[in-house]
Design a protein around this nucleic acid. Structure first.
Lengths: 112, 112
DNA sequence: ACTTTATGTTTTATAAATAGATCATAGTTT
DNA sequence: AAACTATGATCTATTTATAAAACATAAAGT
């Protein structure tokens, strides 16, 4: 009966989720859209939208971002038009980085 | 056999997810952390981390944000120290907004 | 104050994601 | 070049989220 393996979250990510939920709810109300309306447009249930607005960690990333986009909350504070450019930047960076990370067998003296 | 109700995503949210995944992967590699290592610290499986780095919409928001925090990717471009302040701001705003949205029965002339 | 409608909450059946293991491949270091 | 290790990919059992419905509450408009 007792819940066994509850996942834990760092303070930062918990706060980030709360903030995102708050931003979504505020944006939705400012745009005078009902929960029902937004849920329908996003193709999700009203219950899920409620959890998203609460900052529930157990929501799909896709559903959450979709709702955010729908009510006009900017992710990363980046404009829609420049998102692609940012993606390309990260791809260029990734192309330069090693493709796999190798753990050192011996510990290196990082301290000085 | 065929998949029935595949969810769709707007271009903006799809791109945002891709970007987030790329940022996480780049940050992880730059910090020389293996996928295994990050997965363990986040309390998730390596497979899930892989999907997160790919920008798969069907990941838990919590797991994704946790990983982002772990490798040092800033959500909303906001510092950890000021997150709380931003939350309070949205709460203040929400307190002022109406608690439920009412749809107009008659359409109002918005056009002029 | 009354009526209407949005929201909050709970429950259940169903659908889907996750963990974990395994294997193949590719990349890194010596 | 050889050995080692990280990553990519796939599979299955299990856990878990989701949709949908129903109801109660609360808020907004008249």
């Amino acid at each position: 009966m007792a819940k066994v393996s509850a996942r834990t979250y760092s303070r930062y990510s918990r706060e980030a989720m709360t903030l995102l939920g708050n931003l979504i709810r505020a944006a939705r109300i400012e745009r005078k859209m009902t929960a029902q309306e937004v849920a329908e447009r996003a193709g999700i249930s009203r219950g899920l939208l409620q959890r998203i607005e609460k900052g529930d960690p157990k929501c799909e990333l896709g559903a959450t971002f979709e709702v955010a986009a729908l009510v006009g909350v900017k992710l990363f504070d980046i404009e829609a038009t420049t998102l692609n450019g940012h993606i390309r930047q990260t791809e260029d960076k990734l192309a330069l980085l090693p493709r796999s990370v190798r753990k050192k067998v011996k510990v290196v003296d990082d301290d000085f």
